[in-house]
């Protein structure tokens, strides 16, 4: 049952509630980095990586630092009368975690694999302000996912983002040669294409799983 549940979370994050095309998260990199296929692949992998790590880290922070439970670390250390409810700090805590995580990942990759660093290089810092990352962590919280569920959701959301980004990059490479009115060139036509892709993804919403 557990495995089936995880599959449902994954499939729905990739197709039914695709982060870009249905939830409108991460539109800025989606429009900005989809001009050619190579950079789209780099951005996609960077996002999958950071999203998975961020889901993991924010779940731990949420459970052990913010939530008023008996396993709250502040409760244990300071021996308080009752567990403190720090959930109102979630926005600040999460964005700081994501920003430092991105910085950390950047340093690790730079040391461990210079080749990967060169290919991801410029996309990593951009990820801090990608609303899909903060979005996925907040959704994990809203849906009260468990640790494993959060990781799967983060990973699948990243895959969904990459899928939409790659499809878009493939289309936009060809659009360069297409006869398009001057006013619609560039970003406007990219939005029209995104609209058409979104219509296609709307078809998945009829999918009944579970």
């Amino acid at each position: 049952m557990e495995f089936q549940n995880l599959m449902i979370i994954a499939i729905s994050a990739i197709f039914i509630n695709n982060f870009v095309l249905t939830r409108f998260l991460g539109i800025c990199p989606y429009i900005g980095v989809s001009k050619n296929l190579d950079s789209a692949v780099g951005m996609g992998f960077a996002v999958v990586f950071v999203m998975t790590l961020a889901s993991m880290a924010t779940w731990l922070i949420d459970t052990f630092l913010l939530r008023p439970t008996s396993s709250n670390i502040f409760y244990i250390i300071f021996n308080a009368k009752e567990p403190p409810d720090l959930l109102y700090l979630k926005t600040i805590a999460f964005i700081l975690v994501i920003a430092s995580l991105v910085q950390f990942v950047e340093m690790v990759i730079q040391k461990m694999s210079p080749a990967l660093y060169r290919s991801l290089g410029i996309y990593l810092p951009l990820i801090t302000t990608n609303c899909a990352i903060l979005g996925v962590t907040l959704l994990n919280l809203d849906n009260a996912y468990s640790f494993i569920e959060s990781i799967v959701h983060g990973f699948a959301a990243g895959i969904g983002f990459t899928l939409a980004l790659l499809l878009m990059a493939g289309i936009r490479e060809r659009l360069e040669l297409a006869p398009i009115p001057n006013a619609m060139r560039g970003i406007p036509i990219a939005f029209i294409m995104a609209g058409l892709m979104s219509i296609a993804f709307l078809g998945f919403s009829g999918l009944k799983i579970g």
């Binding site: 095309l21 249905t22 409108f24 009115p181 001057n182 006013a183 619609m184 060139r185 970003i187 406007p188 036509i189 990219a190 939005f191 029209i192 995104a194 609209g195 058409l196 979104s198 219509i199 709307l202």
Partner: peptide, 19 residues
């Protein structure tokens, strides 16, 4: 009202302002 409408509307507006 559905997601595609948002993309199409904003795309057409961006085109209109470019024009």
């Amino acid at each position: 009202i559905l997601p595609p409408g948002a993309f199409l509307t904003l795309g057409l507006f961006l085109g209109l302002f470019n024009w």
